[in-house]
């Protein structure tokens, strides 16, 4: 994903994109109390941006992709359509993954005290904004391009 992005958008734009994604991750963290961290990864498991402390982000991005492909198949075979989100609740907290457009996902880590209703609310909006950011970078507005 990173390489694909690099080829298409160039280094400077990629850094700008990462800064914007990081700002978005921090904004979610600010709006949802008890959030431990988050990352944006491509669906093939490569890390795009992260704001996690203590958790190894590239490993988490890879695992997100693995669980995502299973979740996708599960949704597909049971006729639920496209993957939208998944929530894993452990003894010590939550791992939530949200689709951010067709090529990336937003994964958030939360403490057990988190308000899940609020987490869903904020993360869904944030995933949409992230999809928008990625879309804008992958499809740069070119005046010569009619599409």
């Amino acid at each position: 994903m990173r390489r694909a992005l690099k080829q298409r958008v160039g280094r400077r734009q990629l850094i700008a994109l990462e800064t914007e994604l990081l700002a978005e991750l921090r904004a979610v963290k600010h709006r949802v109390p008890h959030l431990a961290g988050g990352l944006v990864a491509s669906v093939d498991g490569l890390l795009v941006a992260h704001d996690t402390h203590g958790t190894e982000p590239s490993g988490l991005a890879a695992m997100t992709a693995a669980s995502l492909s299973l979740a996708q198949r599960l949704a597909d075979t049971t006729g639920q359509g496209e993957f939208r989100e998944s929530l894993v609740r452990g003894e010590h907290g939550y791992v939530a993954t949200y689709a951010a457009g067709g090529s990336c996902v937003l994964t958030l880590l939360a403490h057990p005290d988190v308000n899940v209703g609020r987490l869903h609310l904020e993360a869904r909006r944030s995933a949409q904004r992230i999809a928008g950011l990625l879309n804008d970078s992958l499809l740069p507005k070119d005046p010569r391009d009619p599409g």
């Binding site: 308000n115 869903h120 609310l121």
Partner: peptide, 23 residues
């Protein structure tokens, strides 16, 4: 504990009750 609604019933107010539940 989760901030999620077990049941909601809309009226004429047009409130998003899931947002209200979380808030």
């Amino acid at each position: 504990n989760s901030g999620m609604a077990l049941a909601t019933l809309d009226g004429p107010g047009g409130l998003d009750l899931n947002v209200a539940a979380a808030g």
